[in-house]
């Protein structure tokens, strides 16, 4: 049972504030650190991993400071975002070396266990330099798991993985979380975090924008007005039909681009409304696209609350 605590932590680089007064506590189970690129996720993970001192505030692991305290690595497994990993070594040599550096009594057996966990035994005698991106990710995982740490930190672990590898890693992390380990991973993809994490911490522009259960975050994200851009065979008739329904708050007709801009209260009823209304009125829909569904806008909405 290991808890990482981030208390009033800020980190700035020169004039740039990368992390701004963040306080959070990460306990057993899977926590997703969600935020757009450049939000400060990696900076936070580096501080949690003891590779960056906070400019202000404290980062502790079960009460012990992580900065300049190599002993904490007995309980931390780190999967960095960068791919470099001793390309001249074979996967097996690399994981064994990691086990030895941890001072494990039987480094060979530990390495074999870790390689089996990430299903990399088949390629363990090939050089890492020849690995695909997904294989590298898995060998990095093996090196982080080799000492069976109680905390696992992963920086953008799903980047560059194909769907099958992604699924396998998700299952692996789920298993680790179920064993009571503290797993923290960062991602800029909402669906990944939502599928995996029971606890979500949202970071936007260095600030801790939201924290909690994924349903709560999801509700925050969905209960806002949604804007859609629609073009159809008869925009004016469609506009009239849409505004008649309670799930639509405003409709505007843009004559230059010949599109409709529609604000909807909630996503689901609206998604059902549009095709029904169009069918009933005999209107052909050419395009229905969310105008502000980009993650950035979802996040900035969260920050604004």
């Amino acid at each position: 049972m290991t808890v990482m605590t981030v208390a009033d932590v800020s980190r700035w680089f020169g004039n740039v504030v990368a992390v701004n007064d963040v306080t959070m506590s990460v306990g057993p189970g899977i926590t997703g650190l969600l935020g757009p690129n450049g939000a400060g996720k990696s900076t936070l993970i580096n501080m949690l991993a003891g590779f960056l001192p906070p400019s202000a505030g404290t980062v502790t692991l079960d009460g012990a400071p992580v900065w300049k305290n190599p002993q904490i690595y007995r309980s931390i497994g780190l999967v960095p975002e960068r791919e470099a990993a001793y390309d001249v070594l074979t996967g097996h040599q690399f994981v064994v070396a990691n086990a030895e550096l941890h001072g494990l009594p039987d480094a060979g057996a530990a390495a074999q266990r870790a390689l089996a966990t990430v299903q990399m035994e088949y390629a363990q005698d090939r050089k890492i330099g020849g690995y695909s991106k997904g294989m590298r990710q898995r060998i990095k995982m093996a090196s982080a798991l080799v000492h069976e740490p109680s905390v696992l930190l992963l920086d953008e672990p799903f980047n560059g993985m194909d769907p099958r590898q992604r699924l396998h890693l998700m299952e692996l992390l789920q298993a680790m979380g179920a064993e009571g380990r503290t797993v923290l991973f960062s991602s800029h993809i909402l669906e990944e975090v939502e599928r995996l994490a029971s606890q979500i911490e949202v970071v936007v522009a260095g600030r801790h924008a939201a924290s909690g259960d994924f349903r709560e975050i999801r509700r925050l994200m969905t209960d806002r007005p949604h804007r859609y851009v629609i073009s159809s065979s008869d925009d004016r008739a469609l506009a009239a039909a849409l505004i008649a329904d309670g799930s639509t708050t405003s409709v505007s007709l843009d004559s230059t681009t010949e599109t409709l801009e529609v604000d909807a209260v909630e996503f689901l009823p609206f998604a059902e409304l549009v095709p029904r209304v169009a069918r009933d009125a005999g209107i052909r829909l050419y395009r229905v696209s969310p105008a502000d569904e980009s993650l950035e806008s979802v996040f900035s909405y969260l920050v604004a609350i």
């Binding site: 590779f51 190599p70 007995r74 960095p80 960068r82 470099a84 990993a85 990691n98 941890h102 001072g103």
Partner: peptide
């Protein structure tokens, strides 16, 4: 340079 030093540093080994 390539960042692989992290695998050595993330260990309980005296600097």
């Amino acid at each position: 340079d390539d960042g692989s030093i992290v695998y050595v540093l993330a260990k309980p080994v005296s600097r």
